[in-house]
Design a protein around this nucleic acid. Structure first.
Lengths: 143, 143
DNA sequence: TTAGGTGCAAATCCTTTGCAGCTCC
DNA sequence: GGAGCTGCAAAGGATTTGCACCTAA
């Protein structure tokens, strides 16, 4: 399914669906969580597929443009992505102690943001809400 | 006031309040909005104060740790900061066309986040909400 | 006095690019 | 056939660091 969407996205722009791009796409959609370019590259390299680091980066940018993948954070160590297709939009809580990422979604939160955008006559297209703090486990550990 | 707070922060860590650090601090608090390291460095250089690029970066990191300054975004072109002292917490809308940054605050939004944290038994300490899209002016321009 | 700071230039790190040969449509 | 790809290695750009010389406390 994802590949069909990507396919369409590419041909709309006169681009080609190559083996390498397929490898990147497949690998991403076989990962269930978040990933960074380097790990993605390594996991492709360790599989039976192939794609150079350059292609991984290039494809990742295309996937973000196509809307199939989202860049969720830019940290010191580079960008973190996740695939979007088949996922409802959601936000993240990030534990600063153990790095755990908790996903959550709130309809109410979405509505509120829409209202705020209207008030400011801002045409919002995407948003990122990141709540940092400590997860349940780390709170206990600190006591 | 800020300098007193910074002073205390530094001595608590056995660090010194140097001319260069003061220059960075002063310059930041004379800017009312957002800034990036390079512009900060240039504006210091053009004033009667001084500090090398290295000191600007080093001081910026200290200021973030002290809580006087916040890193609000990491973009392709580097980080963007703003000073926090004397500012109420707020979030940002960022125009992807012209780069304009609009600040907003919603008590309701804050409360909602608190509730969500409680639901997940997550101890939130800070958050960043970034809404991307187009500002009023850019919406017109596109028509 | 002396731990800590400074500027400079070199080093890092992630990401992008130029190029020559390859391949999808 | 040819526009668009690929991998490689080199280039980029923001930020950090090693070092020899300063300076706040």
């Amino acid at each position: 399914m994802e590949s069909k969407i990507f396919q369409e996205f590419l041909s709309r722009r006169g681009l080609k669906l190559t083996k390498e791009r397929m490898s990147v796409l497949r690998q991403i959609f076989s990962i269930h969580g978040h990933f960074d370019p380097e790990h993605l590259y390594l996991s492709i390299r360790d599989s039976d597929m192939k794609a150079s680091r350059a292609s991984v980066y290039r494809t990742l940018n295309l996937l973000v443009e196509s809307g199939l993948v989202e860049r969720i954070t830019r940290s010191d160590k580079g960008n973190v992505y996740e695939h979007t297709y088949g996922h409802r939009h959601h936000d993240h809580m990030i534990c600063t102690a153990c790095g755990e990422v908790i996903e959550f979604f709130s309809e109410h939160l979405e509505d509120l943001q829409k209202m705020i955008c209207e008030q400011h006559q801002f045409a919002g297209t995407t948003h990122t809400l990141e709540i940092r703090g400590n997860c349940k486990a780390c709170q206990k550990r600190k006591k």
